[in-house]
């Protein structure tokens, strides 16, 4: 049992980070903290991919001409792409938070929701 847990430690780390990140996204009302949670969530997936690519006893996949055992380089390449996507998402998310702060004067979800609901009630009134 202990052996099973210890030999899969990379997966435990991934699962912990994944759940922690996801919990932050769902539970926090602060828009910046949500983005931080989203980042942790994404990073856990990066770790999942990279740990999958590890070959026991393998070295970095650099061609030297000698017959050597390499780690699988493909997951690394995929994750490079995913990191770029993650950076773009974070940048866009934070830019949106800046704009939201400018027009709503707050970055708390509850305040923004209250402001939106007030606007919606005005819309309903105006339509009658």
């Amino acid at each position: 049992m202990f052996q099973f847990i210890a030999s899969h430690y990379n997966y435990w780390i991934v699962i912990f980070l994944m759940m922690a990140g996801f919990y932050i996204v769902v539970s926090r009302g602060n828009l910046v903290k949500k983005i931080v949670g989203l980042n942790i969530f994404q990073v856990s997936v990066f770790l999942l991919y990279i740990s999958i690519g590890k070959v026991a006893g393998g070295t970095a996949p650099i061609l030297t001409g000698k017959p050597e055992l390499f780690s699988n380089p493909l997951p690394h390449v995929l994750i490079l792409t995913a990191i770029v996507v993650g950076v773009a998402t974070t940048a866009l998310g934070l830019a949106l938070v800046v704009r939201i702060r400018e027009v709503y004067g707050s970055i708390e979800e509850a305040d923004i929701q209250a402001a939106n609901e007030a606007m919606e009630q005005e819309d309903v009134k105006a339509a009658q």
Partner: peptide, 29 residues
């Protein structure tokens, strides 16, 4: 101005969806 909060919600949910998709692809790989 509500377009901003709509876009933010969409970003959070869309990214969670895309990340789920990547996890699935990774496991298949």
């Amino acid at each position: 101005r509500r377009a901003l909060s709509a876009s933010y919600t969409y970003l959070i949910m869309g990214t969670v969806g895309a990340t789920f998709f990547v996890i699935g692809v990774g496991l298949i790989y």
